Simulated scan of single mutants.
Amino acid sequence: MACFSAEVPQLCLSNRGDLVLKRLKISFICSIIFYFFFYLFSLFCFFQHRCVAIFKDKKGSGAPAGFALGSVEGRVAIQYIVAASPRDNFTFKCHRSNGTSNGFQDIYAVNDIKFHPVHGTLATVGSDGRFSFWDKDARTKLKNSEAMEQPISSCAFNHNGQIFAYAVSYDWSKGHEFFNPQKKNYIFLRSCYDDLKPRNR
């Protein structure tokens, strides 16, 4: 699966699903600067990448500061382009069952990641049918939704971050045998501005 992000004008990221992330700098001509080779170790994402999103500099310059990379193993990596400290780059687990049954935990793919255009916090959606809001700087979860009857396959914020939209549909994560044509696809809209406010530290 390929994933692509170009939310910030100066940078776009492309991933073909082969654990190679291509960074492109946008100018009058799109030129390849270099490849990021994120094999297993560098971002601790041990499985295929599923989605990628760029976040901006907190100082308000609008310049790209880094990106979040979601994987099929229920994990998100936060990576700065130029990290002030190696500790700024980290991963966190998400879209997993709270408890374990017979010693096993259910782990779901992260289907999409979006950063709030005002607060800089982020939303993730997954194959577990839930959306979650996160504060990457405080490294904490802000909100977790109830599970929908199908996976959440995609999400987006409107231009001023007042509305959060998410699509509920089968994402094929369990294969064709679990596809049910009787289940309808939906797009939901919800007010979200206050829910995405960063945690006071």
Rank of each mutant, 00 (worst) to 15 (best):
A6Y: 05
E7Q: 08
E7I: 00
Q10E: 15
C12A: 11
N15E: 09
R16T: 09
G17L: 03
D18F: 03
L19E: 11
L19H: 12
L21S: 07
K22G: 03
K22E: 14
K22R: 14
K25V: 14
I29F: 11
C30N: 05
I32F: 10
I33G: 10
I33M: 14
Y35N: 12
F37G: 07
F38P: 02
L40C: 12
L40Y: 11
S42R: 15
F44V: 01
F44Q: 09
F44W: 01
F46E: 07
F46W: 03
F46P: 02
F47V: 13
Q48I: 06
H49E: 15
A53M: 02
A53R: 06
A53Q: 05
K56R: 09
K56T: 12
G60L: 06
A63G: 00
P64S: 10
F67E: 06
A68L: 11
G70R: 11
G70V: 09
S71A: 13
E73G: 13
Q79A: 11
Y80R: 04
Y80S: 03
A83C: 06
A84C: 10
P86T: 10
R87Y: 12
N89W: 07
F90C: 04
T91A: 05
T91V: 02
F92W: 09
K93T: 12
C94Y: 01
C94P: 04
H95C: 06
H95F: 07
R96Q: 13
R96P: 01
N98P: 08
G99K: 14
T100A: 02
G103C: 10
G103K: 01
Q105Y: 02
I107P: 05
A109G: 10
V110K: 11
N111P: 02
N111G: 03
N111L: 01
K114I: 07
F115Y: 12
H116D: 08
H116E: 03
P117E: 01
P117R: 00
P117C: 03
H119D: 01
T121A: 06
V125Q: 07
G126M: 01
G126L: 07
S127K: 01
S127A: 12
D137F: 12
A138F: 04
S145Q: 08
A147S: 15
M148V: 00
E149G: 03
Q150N: 08
Q150F: 04
S153A: 14
S153I: 14
H159Y: 08
N160C: 10
Q162C: 09
A165C: 15
V168S: 06
S169F: 05
D171T: 09
W172L: 15
W172D: 11
G175T: 06
Q182G: 04
K183F: 09
F188A: 11
L189S: 10
R190F: 03
C192K: 00
D194C: 09
K197L: 12
P198A: 02
R199A: 10
